[in-house]
Amino acid sequence: MLEVMERPAQQPVPAASEAKSTAHEKLVIFAWSGDLDRVWPTLILATTAAASGMATTVFFTFWGLFPLVREDRRITGKNMMQKMLAVMNRGGIDYLKLSKLQMFGAGSGMMKVLAKQHQVASPAELLASAIELGVKLIPCQMTMDLMGLTTADLIEGIEEPAGAMTAMLDAKDAVTLFI
C-alpha cells in the first residue's frame, strides 16, 4: 500500500499522463441486471469509487430498475402485463435473487448468511451508503415507462429519471462498466 502511494512522488509525472489521469476520476456503471450477484458488486464498486473520490453514476436500466423499488410497493404497473411482471419479479433491494443456485430462496438466503459471517455489507446497506456518498443513481425513464414504474414506486434519494443520452454523455470521460 505504502509503496504504491509513494510512487507518484518519486517519479515526476509528465503533463500528458496527468491529463489522462483526470479522465479516470469518474465511474459510470450501467446496471442492467436485477440479480443479487450482480447488484451486490455494482453497489460495492459504486460505493468504493465514491469513497475514493471518483464522481460516480449508476444508470439503472431494464431488470436493474427493480432493486430500486420501494419496500412498500409490492405490485407496480398500470396494466395487466406490467402487474404480472411485478408479481413474477418482485422489486426491492431485499428481494434480489441469485443468477444461479437460487434454489427457491435457499441460495440467496445462504449467501446472505455467508456475507454476514464475513462482515460484507448487505445490498440494502450499500444502497444507503451509495446515496450518502453522493453516488448519482439514475433510473432509465424509458424502461420505467415500459415496466409501468413511476418515481413514486422508487426509493428516495435517487436522481430524476433520464434517458440514454444523459447516461452516455456522463460516460464519455469516465470508466464505464455494464453489469
Partner: peptide, 8 residues
C-alpha cells in the same frame, strides 16, 4: 417522452 426533458 419524459426522458427527452433531460436528454435533449
Amino acid at each position: 417522452d419524459a426522458g427527452s426533458k433531460t436528454d435533449i
